[in-house]
Amino acid sequence: MSEVDAALRLLCDNPADFARAKSLARARAAGLIDYSAEDLLQEAFVKLLSGERRWPRNVHPLVVLTTAMHGIASNIRKRTDKGAINRHVAVSAAEGELENGQEIVAVERVTPVENANATSELAEIQRLVAGDEDAELVVLAWADGLRGKEAADELGFDMKKYEAARKRLIRKLEPVQALRRES
């Protein structure tokens, strides 16, 4: 990593090379949503320094940097294109939601793969608790963020009935927990 650090320092210390790097970043960042050229350049530096991106020997630093930025920009575009948020749909805010001219920006933190995994987990949970009405109700209470006495009260259960249903539910969910630990 010290070689990568030294090469990047040399590049940054040379005004002409650094200007070229910024120009290349602008070209690679063209069309990226929520990513500026500076963000892309910084991301490339971080990934190269951390070793997440390869630094081949005897290759000019600008070539390595350009290749890294190209890959990062490509990944960002894929994530944007395949993401759950459609950025072509206009979102209107209710009156009073915007203050001081602030803009509402959609930020996607969940990938399609995570969505698919969550959907399959939910289907598995529904299958596991099917037929046990009390356990199904406890799942619904938990989904609403209710636990313990609050959940029992909401469901109309006494604590003994709630605890029995909760323990059955925990046992039934062990296969889902095992899958989560594996991944």
Rank of each mutant, 00 (worst) to 15 (best):
residue 9 R to S: 12
residue 9 R to I: 14
residue 11 L to G: 10
residue 11 L to V: 12
residue 15 P to I: 07
residue 19 A to E: 14
residue 21 A to F: 03
residue 22 K to P: 00
residue 23 S to H: 12
residue 24 L to V: 13
residue 25 A to P: 02
residue 30 A to Y: 08
residue 35 Y to N: 09
residue 37 A to R: 01
residue 43 E to W: 06
residue 44 A to G: 10
residue 48 L to Q: 01
residue 48 L to G: 01
residue 49 L to N: 02
residue 55 W to H: 02
residue 56 P to H: 06
residue 57 R to N: 13
residue 57 R to I: 12
residue 57 R to Q: 15
residue 58 N to C: 07
residue 60 H to I: 10
residue 62 L to R: 07
residue 65 L to C: 09
residue 72 I to P: 00
residue 76 I to S: 01
residue 77 R to A: 02
residue 84 A to T: 02
residue 89 V to I: 04
residue 90 A to T: 02
residue 90 A to Y: 01
residue 92 S to R: 09
residue 95 E to G: 05
residue 100 N to E: 13
residue 102 Q to K: 14
residue 105 V to L: 15
residue 106 A to V: 11
residue 109 R to K: 08
residue 111 T to R: 00
residue 117 N to T: 05
residue 117 N to A: 07
residue 117 N to G: 00
residue 118 A to R: 14
residue 119 T to V: 13
residue 131 G to H: 04
residue 131 G to A: 06
residue 132 D to G: 03
residue 134 D to W: 02
residue 141 A to D: 02
residue 145 G to S: 10
residue 155 L to I: 09
residue 155 L to R: 03
residue 155 L to K: 02
residue 156 G to F: 12
residue 157 F to E: 07
residue 168 R to P: 04
residue 168 R to N: 11
residue 174 E to T: 07
residue 176 V to S: 05
residue 177 Q to A: 14
